[in-house]
Simulated scan of single mutants.
Amino acid sequence: MHFQTDRIKAKILILFSVLMLAFTGCTSVEYQQMQNERDTRREVYEDARRKRFHKRSRNVIANHMLGKWQFLELVVEERGGSEDILKTKAALTASKLEGLRLRFWKNGDNYFYRLENVIAKSYGTYTTRGGHLQFHPISGSQIPDLIFNFVKGTHKQVLLSDGEVDTMMIGAKIMGVAVKETQLDLALDLGMVLSPDGWLRRGNIRCSFQRIE
Protein backbone atom coordinates (compact mmCIF):
# COMPACT_ATOMS: atom_id res chain seq x y z
CA MET A 1 0.00 0.00 0.00
CA HIS A 2 2.78 2.37 0.95
CA PHE A 3 4.62 1.37 -2.22
CA GLN A 4 1.64 2.34 -4.42
CA THR A 5 1.24 5.60 -2.54
CA ASP A 6 4.90 6.41 -3.10
CA ARG A 7 4.52 5.64 -6.81
CA ILE A 8 1.51 7.94 -7.05
CA LYS A 9 3.40 10.69 -5.24
CA ALA A 10 6.36 10.20 -7.54
CA LYS A 11 4.15 10.45 -10.64
CA ILE A 12 2.47 13.57 -9.27
CA LEU A 13 5.88 15.08 -8.54
CA ILE A 14 7.13 14.25 -12.03
CA LEU A 15 3.98 15.68 -13.61
CA PHE A 16 4.28 18.80 -11.49
CA SER A 17 7.93 19.16 -12.47
CA VAL A 18 7.06 18.79 -16.15
CA LEU A 19 4.33 21.41 -15.84
CA MET A 20 6.70 23.76 -14.03
CA LEU A 21 9.35 23.30 -16.69
CA ALA A 22 6.80 23.92 -19.43
CA PHE A 23 5.48 27.00 -17.64
CA THR A 24 9.00 28.27 -16.99
CA GLY A 25 9.93 27.65 -20.62
CA CYS A 26 6.90 29.56 -21.87
CA THR A 27 7.61 32.36 -19.44
CA SER A 28 11.24 32.54 -20.60
CA VAL A 29 10.20 32.65 -24.26
CA GLU A 30 7.60 35.34 -23.60
CA TYR A 31 10.11 37.34 -21.56
CA GLN A 32 12.69 37.08 -24.33
CA GLN A 33 10.10 38.18 -26.89
CA MET A 34 9.16 41.16 -24.74
CA GLN A 35 12.83 42.03 -24.27
CA ASN A 36 13.44 41.80 -28.02
CA GLU A 37 10.44 44.04 -28.71
CA ARG A 38 11.69 46.61 -26.18
CA ASP A 39 15.18 46.52 -27.73
CA THR A 40 13.71 46.97 -31.21
CA ARG A 41 11.57 49.92 -30.10
CA ARG A 42 14.59 51.47 -28.38
CA GLU A 43 16.73 51.07 -31.52
CA VAL A 44 14.00 52.61 -33.70
CA TYR A 45 13.67 55.53 -31.29
CA GLU A 46 17.43 56.12 -31.10
CA ASP A 47 17.76 55.92 -34.89
CA ALA A 48 14.95 58.45 -35.36
CA ARG A 49 16.51 60.72 -32.73
CA ARG A 50 19.92 60.57 -34.45
CA LYS A 51 18.34 61.37 -37.82
CA ARG A 52 16.49 64.36 -36.36
CA PHE A 53 19.71 65.61 -34.74
CA HIS A 54 21.74 65.25 -37.95
CA LYS A 55 18.99 66.95 -39.94
CA ARG A 56 18.91 69.89 -37.51
CA SER A 57 22.73 70.08 -37.61
CA ARG A 58 22.74 70.11 -41.41
CA ASN A 59 20.06 72.79 -41.53
CA VAL A 60 21.74 75.23 -39.13
CA ILE A 61 23.98 76.75 -41.83
CA ALA A 62 21.26 76.42 -44.48
CA ASN A 63 18.92 78.46 -42.27
CA HIS A 64 21.58 81.09 -41.58
CA MET A 65 22.00 81.53 -45.33
CA LEU A 66 18.36 82.50 -45.89
CA GLY A 67 18.00 86.00 -47.31
CA LYS A 68 19.67 88.03 -50.05
CA TRP A 69 23.41 88.49 -50.45
CA GLN A 70 25.56 90.67 -52.72
CA PHE A 71 29.04 89.86 -54.00
CA LEU A 72 31.75 91.46 -51.87
CA GLU A 73 35.15 90.08 -52.89
CA LEU A 74 37.02 87.13 -54.36
CA VAL A 75 40.48 86.62 -52.87
CA VAL A 76 43.23 84.03 -52.72
CA GLU A 77 44.44 83.57 -49.15
CA GLU A 78 47.90 82.03 -49.40
CA ARG A 79 49.68 80.42 -46.48
CA GLY A 80 52.47 78.12 -47.51
CA GLY A 81 53.52 79.49 -50.89
CA SER A 82 53.14 82.10 -53.60
CA GLU A 83 49.86 82.06 -55.54
CA ASP A 84 50.47 85.01 -57.88
CA ILE A 85 48.92 83.29 -60.91
CA LEU A 86 45.73 82.40 -59.04
CA LYS A 87 45.58 85.91 -57.56
CA THR A 88 45.68 87.45 -61.03
CA LYS A 89 42.94 85.12 -62.27
CA ALA A 90 40.83 85.78 -59.16
CA ALA A 91 41.08 89.56 -59.65
CA LEU A 92 39.93 89.22 -63.26
CA THR A 93 36.98 87.02 -62.25
CA ALA A 94 36.04 89.39 -59.40
CA SER A 95 35.69 92.26 -61.87
CA LYS A 96 33.04 90.22 -63.71
CA LEU A 97 31.11 89.38 -60.53
CA GLU A 98 30.32 92.97 -59.56
CA GLY A 99 26.61 93.27 -58.85
CA LEU A 100 26.10 89.51 -58.50
CA ARG A 101 23.40 88.67 -55.98
CA LEU A 102 22.38 85.39 -54.41
CA ARG A 103 18.98 84.84 -52.86
CA PHE A 104 18.26 81.88 -50.57
CA TRP A 105 14.83 80.84 -49.30
CA LYS A 106 13.05 77.82 -47.86
CA ASN A 107 9.86 76.15 -49.05
CA GLY A 108 8.73 73.21 -46.93
CA ASP A 109 11.77 71.04 -46.25
CA ASN A 110 13.65 72.24 -49.35
CA TYR A 111 16.15 75.08 -49.62
CA PHE A 112 16.26 77.09 -52.83
CA TYR A 113 18.62 79.62 -54.38
CA ARG A 114 18.50 82.07 -57.26
CA LEU A 115 21.35 83.91 -58.93
CA GLU A 116 20.50 87.50 -59.87
CA ASN A 117 22.03 90.49 -61.65
CA VAL A 118 24.29 88.58 -64.02
CA ILE A 119 23.94 87.48 -67.63
CA ALA A 120 24.02 83.79 -66.68
CA LYS A 121 20.97 82.98 -64.56
CA SER A 122 20.74 80.05 -62.19
CA TYR A 123 17.99 78.57 -60.04
CA GLY A 124 17.85 75.41 -57.97
CA THR A 125 18.19 73.85 -54.54
CA TYR A 126 21.12 73.68 -52.16
CA THR A 127 22.27 71.42 -49.34
CA THR A 128 24.76 71.87 -46.51
CA ARG A 129 26.58 69.16 -44.61
CA GLY A 130 29.57 69.30 -42.29
CA GLY A 131 30.45 72.90 -43.16
CA HIS A 132 30.20 72.26 -46.91
CA LEU A 133 27.75 73.56 -49.50
CA GLN A 134 26.54 72.06 -52.76
CA PHE A 135 24.25 73.66 -55.34
CA HIS A 136 21.82 71.51 -57.33
CA PRO A 137 20.71 73.58 -60.35
CA ILE A 138 17.22 73.13 -61.75
CA SER A 139 17.87 75.58 -64.56
CA GLY A 140 20.74 77.77 -65.65
CA SER A 141 24.45 77.65 -64.92
CA GLN A 142 26.37 76.04 -62.10
CA ILE A 143 27.29 78.73 -59.57
CA PRO A 144 30.74 77.19 -58.92
CA ASP A 145 31.46 77.46 -62.65
CA LEU A 146 30.76 81.20 -62.51
CA ILE A 147 32.71 81.94 -59.33
CA PHE A 148 35.56 79.44 -59.33
CA ASN A 149 35.91 78.66 -63.03
CA PHE A 150 39.46 80.07 -63.07
CA VAL A 151 40.76 77.17 -60.92
CA LYS A 152 39.94 74.55 -63.56
CA GLY A 153 43.01 72.52 -64.42
CA THR A 154 44.74 73.45 -61.15
CA HIS A 155 46.13 70.56 -59.12
CA LYS A 156 46.41 70.25 -55.38
CA GLN A 157 48.20 67.84 -53.09
CA VAL A 158 46.34 66.17 -50.26
CA LEU A 159 48.04 64.56 -47.27
CA LEU A 160 46.31 61.25 -46.54
CA SER A 161 45.83 59.67 -43.12
CA ASP A 162 48.54 57.07 -43.79
CA GLY A 163 51.11 59.80 -44.50
CA GLU A 164 50.98 59.38 -48.27
CA VAL A 165 50.39 62.34 -50.58
CA ASP A 166 47.77 62.28 -53.33
CA THR A 167 47.62 64.74 -56.23
CA MET A 168 44.21 65.65 -57.63
CA MET A 169 42.37 68.37 -59.50
CA ILE A 170 40.78 71.14 -57.43
CA GLY A 171 37.03 70.59 -57.58
CA ALA A 172 34.48 73.36 -57.16
CA LYS A 173 31.24 71.39 -56.99
CA ILE A 174 31.39 71.13 -53.20
CA MET A 175 32.80 74.13 -51.34
CA GLY A 176 33.30 75.20 -47.77
CA VAL A 177 30.66 77.55 -46.38
CA ALA A 178 30.56 79.83 -43.35
CA VAL A 179 28.12 82.52 -42.22
CA LYS A 180 29.43 85.27 -39.94
CA GLU A 181 26.68 87.73 -39.02
CA THR A 182 26.35 89.80 -42.22
CA GLN A 183 28.94 87.93 -44.31
CA LEU A 184 28.68 84.69 -46.27
CA ASP A 185 31.94 82.98 -47.28
CA LEU A 186 32.30 80.28 -49.93
CA ALA A 187 35.76 78.70 -50.03
CA LEU A 188 37.88 76.19 -51.93
CA ASP A 189 40.79 74.48 -50.20
CA LEU A 190 44.06 74.59 -52.17
CA GLY A 191 45.52 71.54 -50.44
CA MET A 192 49.05 71.18 -49.06
CA VAL A 193 52.51 72.37 -50.04
CA LEU A 194 55.88 70.94 -48.99
CA SER A 195 58.14 73.44 -47.22
CA PRO A 196 61.48 73.16 -45.36
CA ASP A 197 59.39 72.82 -42.19
CA GLY A 198 57.28 69.99 -43.60
CA TRP A 199 53.81 69.97 -45.11
CA LEU A 200 51.86 73.21 -44.73
CA ARG A 201 48.42 74.27 -45.85
CA ARG A 202 48.69 76.04 -49.17
CA GLY A 203 45.72 78.30 -48.49
CA ASN A 204 42.26 78.76 -49.96
CA ILE A 205 40.17 80.80 -52.37
CA ARG A 206 37.40 82.74 -50.66
CA CYS A 207 34.37 84.32 -52.30
CA SER A 208 32.49 86.57 -49.86
CA PHE A 209 29.01 88.08 -49.97
CA GLN A 210 27.46 90.70 -47.73
CA ARG A 211 23.88 90.46 -46.53
CA ILE A 212 21.52 93.05 -48.01
CA GLU A 213 18.22 91.52 -46.84
Rank of each mutant, 00 (worst) to 15 (best):
M1P: 11
M1D: 12
H2G: 15
F3M: 10
T5H: 06
R7T: 04
I8D: 13
I8R: 14
K11I: 13
I12Y: 13
L13W: 08
I14N: 10
I14D: 12
I14Q: 12
L15G: 15
S17F: 14
M20W: 07
G25H: 05
G25E: 02
G25M: 02
S28Y: 08
Y31P: 00
Q32G: 07
Q32R: 13
M34W: 11
N36D: 12
N36E: 12
N36L: 11
E37R: 14
D39M: 13
D39K: 14
D39I: 07
T40A: 14
Y45Q: 12
R49K: 15
R50K: 14
R52T: 11
R52S: 15
F53Q: 14
F53Y: 13
H54S: 14
H54W: 11
H54C: 04
H54N: 12
K55D: 12
V60R: 07
I61T: 15
N63E: 10
H64I: 00
G67Y: 05
L72S: 12
E73G: 03
V75W: 00
E77W: 01
E78S: 14
G80Q: 07
G80F: 09
G81R: 12
S82Y: 06
S82W: 00
S82T: 06
D84W: 08
D84N: 11
L86E: 03
L86V: 03
K87Q: 09
A91W: 03
A94W: 00
L100T: 07
R101I: 04
L102C: 05
R103S: 15
F104K: 06
W105K: 09
Y111P: 06
Y111M: 03
F112A: 03
F112K: 08
Y113C: 08
R114F: 03
L115S: 09
N117R: 10
V118N: 04
V118G: 02
I119M: 10
A120R: 10
K121T: 11
S122M: 06
G124H: 02
Y126R: 00
T128F: 05
R129W: 10
G130A: 07
G130M: 02
G131M: 04
H132D: 05
H132V: 05
L133C: 02
H136D: 11
I138Q: 10
I138T: 08
S139W: 04
G140N: 07
I143V: 15
D145H: 07
D145A: 12
F150K: 05
V151D: 00
G153H: 03
T154H: 03
K156W: 01
Q157S: 11
L159V: 08
L160K: 12
E164I: 02
V165P: 09
T167Y: 06
T167L: 01
M169V: 06
I170W: 00
I170A: 02
G171N: 08
A172Y: 05
A172R: 10
M175T: 13
M175I: 08
T182W: 01
Q183P: 00
D185Q: 04
D185W: 01
L190A: 06
G191L: 05
G191Q: 05
V193S: 04
V193N: 05
V193H: 04
V193W: 02
P196V: 03
G198P: 08
G198M: 10
L200P: 00
L200N: 13
L200K: 15
R201C: 09
R201N: 15
R202H: 05
G203S: 09
I205G: 07
C207D: 05
F209G: 07
F209M: 07
Q210T: 14
I212R: 06
E213R: 05
E213H: 01
